[in-house]
Simulated assay, not measured.
Amino acid sequence: MSETAKAAATSPVVAAADVAPNRRRGGDIRVVLSPKTVGSTSGFMGTLTVRPGEYVAEHYHPYSEEFVFVVSGTLVARVEDVGVFEVAAGEGFMVPIGRRHRVWNDGDSDVRAVFYLGPLAPRPELGHVDTEELPVGGEAMSQPDVGAPRR
């Protein structure tokens, strides 16, 4: 185990508010529990907040399944070979390894969700493959012609 992982493993509690948001792919993504933050070895977990009109650009994970549980609001998801579906608060869904997927918020209030990916990719940069142009400036735009869901 690396020195960073050893140090992280001694502090098992991480607050989402203490994690810098990643808005590069859209939404507010915060990886809360990970090899870097707690020394995990099998996967990582975080939070996702998607404001009305926002989306997370289409992508896939070549090594990991992704599990998403919606805490509040209704998230719209598109998963390759499955289709488009809504996921309401109290519901979850799984994205199989290698399947392209995209999520967005068609509603009037924020969507809050928790996600988990596992197993880990051999290296972090191999874990995520973008398949859609990212939101302008790394921020999801709510203009009708920018970031509109491709159904």
Score class of each variant (00 low, 15 high):
residue 1 M to Q: 09
residue 2 S to W: 03
residue 3 E to T: 10
residue 3 E to Q: 11
residue 4 T to Y: 04
residue 6 K to C: 12
residue 6 K to Y: 13
residue 6 K to N: 15
residue 7 A to L: 09
residue 7 A to E: 13
residue 8 A to F: 00
residue 8 A to S: 04
residue 8 A to Q: 00
residue 8 A to R: 00
residue 8 A to W: 01
residue 9 A to N: 12
residue 9 A to Y: 03
residue 9 A to K: 10
residue 10 T to P: 00
residue 13 V to T: 08
residue 14 V to C: 02
residue 15 A to W: 01
residue 16 A to Y: 01
residue 17 A to P: 00
residue 17 A to Q: 11
residue 18 D to F: 06
residue 19 V to E: 07
residue 19 V to K: 07
residue 26 G to M: 04
residue 27 G to A: 10
residue 30 R to E: 10
residue 30 R to P: 05
residue 32 V to Y: 00
residue 34 S to L: 04
residue 34 S to C: 08
residue 35 P to K: 05
residue 39 G to Y: 08
residue 41 T to Y: 03
residue 41 T to N: 10
residue 44 F to T: 00
residue 45 M to Y: 07
residue 45 M to N: 11
residue 48 L to F: 08
residue 50 V to M: 09
residue 50 V to G: 11
residue 52 P to A: 15
residue 53 G to H: 00
residue 53 G to R: 01
residue 53 G to Q: 00
residue 55 Y to A: 13
residue 56 V to D: 13
residue 57 A to K: 07
residue 57 A to I: 06
residue 59 H to A: 11
residue 60 Y to S: 07
residue 61 H to L: 08
residue 62 P to T: 11
residue 62 P to C: 09
residue 68 V to G: 10
residue 69 F to D: 06
residue 70 V to K: 05
residue 74 T to I: 00
residue 79 V to W: 02
residue 80 E to R: 08
residue 80 E to K: 12
residue 81 D to S: 14
residue 82 V to W: 01
residue 86 E to P: 02
residue 86 E to D: 14
residue 87 V to Q: 05
residue 90 G to M: 06
residue 90 G to C: 12
residue 91 E to W: 05
residue 91 E to D: 14
residue 91 E to P: 02
residue 93 F to C: 14
residue 94 M to F: 09
residue 95 V to A: 05
residue 95 V to L: 02
residue 96 P to Q: 09
residue 97 I to N: 12
residue 97 I to L: 12
residue 99 R to P: 04
residue 103 V to K: 07
residue 107 G to Y: 11
residue 108 D to N: 13
residue 108 D to M: 10
residue 108 D to V: 13
residue 110 D to H: 01
residue 113 A to H: 01
residue 114 V to C: 09
residue 115 F to Y: 15
residue 116 Y to S: 15
residue 116 Y to K: 03
residue 116 Y to R: 07
residue 117 L to F: 07
residue 117 L to N: 12
residue 118 G to Q: 02
residue 118 G to C: 04
residue 120 L to H: 04
residue 120 L to Q: 06
residue 121 A to M: 05
residue 122 P to K: 03
residue 124 P to M: 09
residue 124 P to E: 15
residue 127 G to I: 02
residue 128 H to F: 13
residue 128 H to G: 04
residue 128 H to K: 08
residue 129 V to C: 03
residue 129 V to Y: 02
residue 130 D to A: 15
residue 130 D to S: 14
residue 130 D to Y: 09
residue 132 E to G: 13
residue 138 G to P: 03
residue 140 A to E: 07
residue 140 A to I: 05
residue 140 A to N: 09
residue 140 A to Q: 06
residue 145 D to A: 13
residue 147 G to H: 02
residue 147 G to C: 04
residue 148 A to Q: 07
residue 149 P to G: 13
residue 149 P to I: 03
residue 151 R to A: 15
